[in-house]
Computed example of a mutant assay.
Amino acid sequence: MSVQPLEVLYTAVATAENGRDGRVASDDGKLDVVVNPPKELGGSGAGTNPEQLFAAGYSACFQGALGVVARQEKADISGSTVTAEVGLGKLPNGGFGLKVALSASIPNVDRDTALALVEKAHQVCPYSNATRGNIEVALTVA
């Protein structure tokens, strides 16, 4: 798969200090959070962690993509939610990797329509396009 050229419309900038046990802040000051490894990984769990930040970004982005698709399809997605679960684990080569489970709840459409909307949103979402072929992403409709 080749990299396609991109016309950049917006650039987010964030800087981390002390990696997974420190602080992350955006250049505009709107995001400034303490990050700590979760207790499950031997950390204090006192702050957020990169996986939670990724889950928040992916779920918000996917919800936005779902809105784009729903407008095109004239589908009512009011009251819908998207939940992202991001798993961190060891890869066979000794490195670390991620896997994602996205679950959409779309109460105002039937299940088949919801599944079709989620599949189409997965083709539109920038996070889905960035992760496609790199990590496992499972899609479900709640």
Rank of each mutant, 00 (worst) to 15 (best):
V35K: 09
T113C: 03
S26R: 05
N93L: 08
V118F: 00
T11Q: 10
R132L: 11
E40M: 03
A16D: 04
A60C: 12
I106F: 06
A138D: 06
Y127N: 06
F96G: 07
A12L: 11
Q72V: 01
G29Q: 05
Y10K: 05
Q123F: 10
A121E: 09
G42H: 11
E73G: 04
V35Q: 05
C125S: 09
K39P: 07
V141H: 02
L139T: 04
V137T: 14
E136V: 15
L6T: 14
V13P: 02
E17A: 07
V34Q: 14
A55F: 04
T15V: 15
F62P: 06
D27E: 14
G94L: 06
T48Y: 13
T83F: 05
V68G: 02
K120W: 04
P38F: 03
D32N: 15
D112N: 13
V35S: 07
C125V: 03
V24G: 10
G57V: 04
V35L: 14
T83G: 11
E136F: 10
G19I: 11
V33S: 04
P37Q: 14
C125K: 08
N93S: 12
V86D: 08
R20P: 11
G45I: 12
A14F: 09
D28T: 12
P50M: 08
A75V: 10
A101C: 07
G57F: 05
L9E: 11
L88M: 15
S26P: 12
A16H: 05
N129D: 02
Q63R: 12
G47E: 06
K30F: 12
R20Y: 09
K90V: 14
K99I: 08
R23Q: 09
A84W: 09
A130V: 05
A12K: 00
K74R: 00
E73T: 14
G79K: 07
I106R: 08
R132W: 08
G67M: 05
G22L: 11
V86N: 06
Q52L: 14
A14V: 15
L91H: 11
D21P: 12
N129W: 02
Q72A: 13
N93M: 05
G22I: 06
V137Y: 07
D32S: 15
V137W: 01
N36V: 12
L102T: 00
P38Y: 10
G19W: 02
Q72P: 02
L6H: 04
A121P: 07
